[in-house]
């Protein structure tokens, strides 16, 4: 066997393994999509059918008549946009201070940030719930919006970036009378674009998909976020699988779109989250 045919053989084998892997990973999504276009009578059949006779678009139209999908969607968007914005702002400013300013206890303080990243969220959730209860914010969106405005991981990420920016420039800027705040906004922040994009995508994904926090804070359906609303819909209409699947498909869309447009930022984010330890 010559080298060329051997190479082609390896390629074919590789594709077989990779396609099998892709089938395993994508099968549930395909199943979700095809079920969302089936009629109810086509769902409860043995053996299961991959496709219905026609595309039942009505399933998608029925979502909003069944429950307040739009309100949940808007709640989720409100919480996500708010949290991402403030997380980026506080992380970037603090990351800059930790990386480039001289002040007492800087390293000790940063070590404290690093140490808390190891703590499971379940260790802090109870006192945070009690705090929110005291402030009267339980069962409002504020309970989901206020605590995550600061992120130790985000601060760490931005600090690691700002430390790589050469210091020559801000020394020059300081002599020209530029304050640290000016250096931050005019010199350092514009350079941090890709790190900020990565943090934005990761924190958006985390908040958009979060089920645990709203489960604890929110019991009034008016303030449900999408994951909570979807889970409650599952409880109520667990037999109407096509409509449920349609609602599920739509809930995935925002993150999916973000992923398709910024796959590389996602990849970078995974690598950076690997620095966490």
């Amino acid at each position: 066997m010559n080298i060329k045919t051997k190479r082609i053989g390896t390629q074919v084998l590789s594709h077989l393994v990779l396609i099998l892997g892709a089938l395993i990973m994508l099968m549930p999504f395909i199943w979700m999509l095809t079920t969302s276009f089936k009629g109810l009578h086509e769902v409860f059949v043995i053996p299961p059918k991959w496709f219905g006779e026609r595309l039942v678009w009505e399933n998608y139209l029925q979502i909003s008549s069944r429950f307040d999908y739009l309100a949940y969607f808007l709640n989720s968007i409100k919480v996500s946009v708010w949290v991402v914005f403030f997380q980026l702002l506080t992380s970037a400013m603090a990351g800059f201070a930790f990386a480039r300013l001289n002040f007492r206890f800087r390293n000790q303080m940063f070590l404290l940030y690093l140490a808390t990243m190891m703590v499971p969220m379940h260790v802090i959730i109870i006192p945070n719930f009690l705090q929110m209860r005291i402030y009267g914010l339980v069962n409002t969106l504020w309970s989901l919006m206020i605590p995550p405005m600061v992120s130790a991981f985000g601060t760490f990420l931005l600090r690691q970036f700002f430390i790589t920016v050469p210091k020559d420039m801000d020394e020059a800027a300081r002599i020209d009378g530029c304050t640290p705040l000016g250096i931050f906004f005019k010199i350092c922040l514009p350079m941090a674009g890709s790190t900020i994009a990565t943090l934005a995508i990761f924190s958006f994904m985390g908040i958009w998909n979060d089920y645990f926090t709203p489960l604890i804070y929110i019991s009034n359906a008016v303030h449900y976020t999408l994951p909570l609303g979807l889970a409650s819909m599952k409880g109520m209409y667990s037999t109407d699988w096509p409509v449920l699947m349609a609602a599920t498909c739509i809930s995935i869309l925002p993150v999916l779109i973000a992923f398709l447009f910024a796959q590389d930022a996602f990849v970078k984010g995974v690598m950076l989250s690997g620095l966490k330890e």
């Binding site: 892997g21 892709a22 998909n209 994951p227 979807l230 889970a231 599920t248 809930s251 993150v255 996602f266």
Partner: peptide
């Protein structure tokens, strides 16, 4: 394709 499940919410995943 392999990464898709990681970006999907557990709620959506659990329903399917």
């Amino acid at each position: 394709a392999y990464f898709l499940p990681s970006i999907t919410s557990m709620v959506a995943v659990s329903i399917v």
